[in-house]
Design a protein around this nucleic acid. Structure first.
Lengths: 240, 240
DNA sequence: AGCATTGACTTGTTTAAACAAGATGGTATA
DNA sequence: TATACCATCTTGTTTAAACAAGTCAATGCT
């Protein structure tokens, strides 16, 4: 249920592109045509098109039109795109997801943790370590730190289900921005102990800083992925 | 030289944030204040703020203000951000960069290459394989395919220098959108032969589809990175 | 035939205005 | 005192208009 007009227009056009109603390399109807079609102003259309462009669906060509550059991809990989929960990602990729909590406690951020997490020294944090199974294989080892002040009442049961679901629906806090860093590291003894590494001696490590609607950092996470099911997608636009 | 007003405002505010003139967690001056400060309309300010938000510098809070969420990072890693050339990235990270061309030729896209590259079967392509040295170590193995029709006149000399520089300055073609996929793979015999793997048996693989200003795919690239110097950054925003 | 110009289209930038909606603090009321 | 309301600040959405700038095909001239 999009509240804003531009959002529903964005979704409508996106759907048509994915259905190849607007095929790869074709030009969309002009902004004026879309304005008439959707019964809104040109600015509103442009807002929707800008969002599609940011998602790598279209690219505007001044004087010519807006070209579709979306191509459907094979669904073989575990694709990490925007911000979504483990469950959402698993469902989108048609995989059976299970979560096992292997550590649940509280810590006070020392100097080292404060520096790498972005929290302040002395902040009280939940420390949660979880193992994620996809189709029965232990593929992701998550180490989450949540600011207790902003995420009160966390329990192992919630951690086993979905912390994000709890944060958004129970606490009513909105997750807005996520800054991520992707690296590749040698496996640790901990990785070997818990994960199905399947011969790999490296893991993909995603480090994550998450901000809520007040612009406050409330989560720092390190996710260690077994390489087989790991895929990270991105669209970049060259600045002039 | 930014042509558009919103772009120079964007850069101006960005600089102030990086200089911690607007510190982490502080609120920017209100849109009305900035409007007066920069002598432009509110919409133009909002455009600049939207771009800063997309880059993970700020986050707007309705009714309150725009909060700075940028934190300076340690400069120890080779950070891949937007679209930039190997030289630009090396310079930004203060590293000495050398490129060695180990293969240079032309191929016609067969069914398999067409499928993974996004080119059409039968397209004539340049195939260039290059080894990238940073501070004397062979860390990146690049396999580029360029559409000959859109990138005529390529030579090994250009490949050893900078292909992007040639495309943008000599051919006058603009690079606009880059769609990337990041995975982790076992090293191949080719990797072992050419790269300084330093004990790693995995590499970070970045697969890249690049579009020009006409929205035409002209490049498909696979970059294989030795893990030590590899870091990929991203900012995501949760959709409502 | 070849070429320059024009005009009608496209997207890009900027301004102005109005109203919606969230946050905040002060004020009048119960 | 406590609460409800309101004025005023903030950002969010939408419309309208004007002009800049790039593309392209038709027109008319040489």
């Amino acid at each position: 249920m999009p509240k804003a007009k531009y959002e529903s227009i964005f979704r409508s056009i996106k759907k048509k592109i994915e259905a190849q109603d607007y095929p790869y390399q074709s030009l969309l109807p002009s902004e004026n045509t879309l304005t008439a079609e959707y019964g809104c102003s040109r600015n509103t259309i442009r807002r929707a098109l800008a969002d599609l462009s940011a998602d790598g669906y279209v690219q505007a060509i001044q004087g010519k039109g807006v070209r579709v550059i979306y191509q459907p991809v094979g669904k073989t990989t575990f694709i990490i795109g925007g911000i979504e929960t483990f469950q959402e990602t698993a469902r989108r990729n048609n995989l059976r997801a299970v979560t096992r909590v292997i550590r649940f406690g509280t810590v006070s951020a020392d100097a080292k943790l404060a520096r790498e997490s972005g929290f302040s020294e002395g902040d009280e944090l939940w420390a949660v370590e979880r193992l994620r199974y996809l189709d029965g294989k232990a593929l992701i080892l998550d180490l989450n730190y949540f600011l207790k002040e902003l995420v009160p009442g966390l329990t192992p049961e919630i951690a086993q289900n979905s912390i994000y679901e709890y944060i958004e629906n129970q606490l009513g806090m909105q997750i807005v921005t996520s800054k991520r860093k992707m690296t590749v590291e040698h496996v640790t003894m901990r990785d070997e102990r818990w994960m199905d590494l399947d011969g790999y001696d490296c893991v993909a490590v995603v480090t994550n800083h998450t901000f809520n609607a007040d612009g406050l950092l409330f989560e720092y996470t390190q996710s260690r992925h077994q390489p087989d099911y790991f895929c990270f997608q991105d669209t970049a636009t060259r600045k002039k």
